[in-house]
Amino acid sequence: MYVCSCFGVTETQVKQHAENGACTPRQIASACKAGTDCGSCVRRIQAILGRGACPTKATVVDPVLSDLEEAA
């Protein structure tokens, strides 16, 4: 399904960019231009990112912190 009609960007593509590290609508726009023309898709992109397409800080494992916790 298309998220951005202006640039033909699909929900799958947005999720793929999120998996590659784009975690905000602005980063998605930098990756594929979605949201940079009429802007009607920005809320949809936000919803996709909010549904777990992008890892949250709570789920990202910091190797330095993990080593410190193991040492304690």
Rank of each mutant, 00 (worst) to 15 (best):
Y2D: 14
Y2S: 12
V3N: 08
V3G: 01
V3M: 09
C4G: 11
C4W: 09
S5A: 15
S5T: 12
C6R: 13
C6Y: 05
C6S: 15
F7R: 15
F7T: 08
G8M: 11
V9L: 12
V9A: 10
V9P: 09
T10L: 12
T10A: 10
E11H: 11
E11A: 15
T12P: 00
T12C: 00
T12S: 14
Q13N: 03
Q13C: 02
V14T: 02
V14N: 05
V14C: 04
K15M: 04
K15E: 14
A18C: 07
A18K: 06
E19S: 13
N20E: 15
G21T: 12
A22Q: 04
C23Q: 11
C23T: 11
C23I: 07
T24Y: 04
R26Y: 08
R26H: 06
R26T: 10
Q27Y: 00
Q27E: 15
I28G: 02
I28L: 06
I28K: 01
A29D: 02
A31H: 01
A31V: 08
C32W: 05
C32G: 06
A34D: 04
G35Q: 06
T36A: 09
T36Q: 07
D37S: 09
D37V: 11
C38M: 09
G39T: 07
G39R: 03
S40I: 10
S40G: 14
S40C: 12
S40Y: 08
V42Q: 03
R43C: 02
R44Q: 13
I45S: 05
I45L: 03
I45P: 01
L49H: 05
L49N: 03
L49A: 04
G50V: 01
G50T: 01
G50I: 00
R51G: 10
R51N: 14
R51K: 11
R51P: 00
G52W: 05
A53G: 13
A53E: 04
A53S: 15
C54P: 05
C54H: 04
C54V: 05
P55M: 09
P55A: 10
P55C: 05
T56I: 02
T56P: 01
T56K: 13
K57T: 05
A58T: 07
T59L: 06
V60W: 01
V60L: 15
V60P: 01
V60C: 12
D62Y: 08
D62F: 04
P63T: 08
V64P: 00
V64N: 09
L65P: 00
S66T: 08
S66C: 04
D67R: 15
L68E: 12
L68D: 05
L68S: 08
L68H: 10
L68T: 02
E70F: 14
A71S: 13
A71C: 07
A71K: 14
A72M: 12
